[in-house]
Nucleic acid binder design. Structure first.
Lengths: 172, 172
DNA sequence: TCAAACTTTCAATAATAATTGAAAGAAATA
DNA sequence: TATTTCTTTCAATTATTATTGAAAGTTTGA
């Protein structure tokens, strides 16, 4: 297989993976394109290579910068902006984890906290209320676990990640 | 807050969380409804409570059964089917992990394996090819890590999950 | 076999999300 | 200030995905 074909396949595969995880296909593809490009790319480069519009590139590149996994690069003497992706994939994973925790885990934990204070009422039996409270408590406990697992991974440096965690995961 | 309101908030929150993770809002809501229902529900119960059509309920309940997190319950002497969700949230997480690994991780690993065999060609310099190969290798290494982490969690029983893993995650 | 009670399917429709492209904005230069 | 070059915005459009509902299918029992 040749380089260009390999790059296309990666961009396509990354896009598919992205959409399974709630990231728009195009955003994942822009990210993939920047990952496989040794040099930073301009808006026009991205437009050309993915055949998408200027506005679309702008929107998605900005979103990727919000996630912290793409950087703007300014070249001296050049007016236009260039973009490059964080290539350290462990750091990419960490940044994504951090961002998703903030965006998704925190809101659901807030909701769980609120609804765990359900009071007995005339329209429901104490048994029903207790069953509900128990279920919510178990979801909360799981969310807490996920939250601290995420914290640890985020704080962990790559060395820890590779040595301690890998050892734990493959104890054989 | 009263039970009914709490249940609605949970169903709404779970739906929102689902759509962030690539699960359709309605599917997550059906799951949430079954989680907060002490008894198994019939298709009509779900239709009424979520105000969705029969076909929609059927589709989503079937998908949830494919994920292994909802079961069909047959009552003696009753013609219609009732559905109930797996309430052990650790088991739910495990089943989802297992299924997502199969559906998403495996395909991307296959693609990575294919494209890592990129050959030198006249249209690209050896440096470009090497940079690409290196990037893909690091993604592969990360995918392998994710894969074995998932395996371990899937094989682990709840006790391990709570004791070993929690200790690791909160070493303080 | 027929009718009743339910489930499943799927083409049509509706709802949602992504994309475009042209216009407005901003920054740099002369 | 006017011009050039690039970025950003956003209403309109297009594409995608979810939903409906009626018809077809299935199962059970008389």
């Amino acid at each position: 297989m040749q380089l260009d074909e390999a790059k296309s396949k990666f961009i396509e595969g990354w896009g598919t993976l992205g959409s399974a995880w709630g990231v728009s296909r195009t955003m994942a593809q822009v990210h993939a394109l920047l990952l496989v490009s040794p040099n930073a790319l301009s808006t026009e480069d991205i437009m050309d290579q993915l055949q998408i519009s200027r506005g679309n590139v702008n929107m998605n590149v900005r979103a990727l910068m919000d996630w912290g996994i793409v950087r703007k690069e300014l070249r001296p003497g050049e007016r236009r902006e260039f973009f490059s992706a964080e290539k350290d994939i462990h750091r990419v994973a960490t940044l994504i984890l951090q961002e998703r925790r903030k965006r998704e885990l925190e809101p659901i934990m807030r909701v769980l906290g609120e609804i765990s204070q359900v009071e007995p009422s005339p329209t429901s039996t104490p048994e029903e209320t207790e069953a509900f409270t128990k279920m919510i408590a178990s979801v909360q406990s799981f969310a807490n676990f996920a939250n601290s697992a995420a914290s640890t991974l985020i704080k962990a440096d790559e060395n820890w990640f590779l040595s301690t965690f890998m050892k734990l995961m493959r104890p054989s």
